[in-house]
């Protein structure tokens, strides 16, 4: 019992310490950005402020809270107030989060399942023309950045063919039924989703294939085949499960970097998620909003890491024995 408690308490303390460090960094780093909200908002504006007006605005908008106050507010679940949007940071954050989850979550799940399934099938058919051409294509696709895929998709499917909208997550203020709204959201989601899947899928495919090729050489796979088990069962129940760990790690890491990963695609397609919100917050030096999103993004890395440790032991009991 004592050993068990010790086994769990050590990582928990380590994670708590890391969380505290991240909270401090989320407080400190945004403050190191050159300029402040009043400079960002007024310095290049069509309004010319005199020195008195500028001082008055700085006194009104800039809130120089200490780390103690920041931490205290966080404990009280007070994320602060956005100077640029005139709204609580939490309200803005939770309004943007669902869109990021819809886009990034769907992209991760789709690309992971597709990558896993096709990677396993390619490894099973190792040496065939399909496998060779698949690996070649995926290696090329892996090298194409999201910004390039996004721009190409926009050019072809939005500008030339006119099939999909160029921006946004839904038609603004359209009077629609729920069904029409769902279709509208899916319609807007298509291009950014394909862009992200095209970015993530090749890596997943190559990783799953490589892992599977190694596993297929193992003795237990030969035993399973020798027992006369159906090929599908050998592939998925025996071999693929053992090749899954690297893919789960990749899924976790990608998911943890959801906010920063979304930034480029959300900006290209004007998708209203956390990436766009962070981009706007940084350009306006909206400190409380930057701090809130940075804190969430960094804590997300910790939480996902913690979850991964648990998932590893479920997928492969050898991991827990090893630790």
């Amino acid at each position: 019992m004592r050993t068990r408690q010790h086994k769990w308490s050590r990582p928990v303390f380590a994670y708590l310490a890391a969380a505290l460090i991240l909270v401090y960094l989320s407080y400190l780093l945004p403050q190191l950005l050159p300029g402040d909200f009043v400079t960002a908002m007024y310095a290049g504006a069509d309004v010319s402020l005199n020195a008195l007006q500028e001082a008055e605005l700085k006194a009104y908008f800039l809130d120089n809270q200490t780390f103690g106050e920041y931490l205290g507010n966080l404990v009280r679940l007070d994320w602060g107030y956005s100077a640029a949007f005139f709204a609580p940071v939490s309200t803005l954050f939770f309004a943007a989060l669902p869109w990021t989850i819809v886009l990034m979550g769907t992209a991760h799940i789709l690309s992971s399942f597709l990558g896993f399934f096709l990677g396993v099938e390619a490894a099973w058919r190792r040496g065939s023309l399909v496998e060779k051409s698949g690996v070649g294509t995926m290696t090329v696709l892996e090298g194409i950045p999201e910004i390039c895929t996004g721009a190409l998709l926009l050019l072809v499917f939005s500008l030339h063919l006119g099939w999909f909208p160029a921006a946004g997550a839904q038609t603004a203020y359209a009077e629609q039924t729920t069904f029409q709204w769902v279709l509208d959201v899916l319609h807007h989601l298509t291009l950014p989703l394909i862009t992200l899947v095209a970015a993530y899928f090749p890596g997943n495919f190559l990783l799953a294939r490589a892992g599977m090729v190694m596993v297929l050489k193992k003795q237990f796979v030969l035993t399973a085949k020798a027992k006369g088990l159906p090929p599908g069962r050998v592939r998925y129940a025996h071999a693929a499960r053992n090749a899954l760990l690297p893919l789960v790690t990749r899924f976790g890491l990608r998911f943890a970097f959801m906010v920063t990963g979304a930034l480029v695609v959300e900006t290209i397609f004007s998708y209203p998620g956390l990436g766009t919100l962070l981009f706007n917050a940084i350009s306006m030096r909206d400190l409380p909003l930057i701090q809130g999103i940075v804190l969430f993004a960094s804590l997300m890395v910790l939480v996902v890491n913690l979850c991964m440790e648990w998932v590893y032991t479920l997928l492969d009991p050898r991991v827990s024995h090893a630790s």
Partner: peptide
């Protein structure tokens, strides 16, 4: 009747596609 502002990082494309 209604005046609507739409955010788009590609105003030209949104115009060309009728958005």
């Amino acid at each position: 009747k209604r005046l609507i502002y739409v955010r788009t990082s590609k105003p030209l494309m949104s115009l060309a596609t009728g958005q």
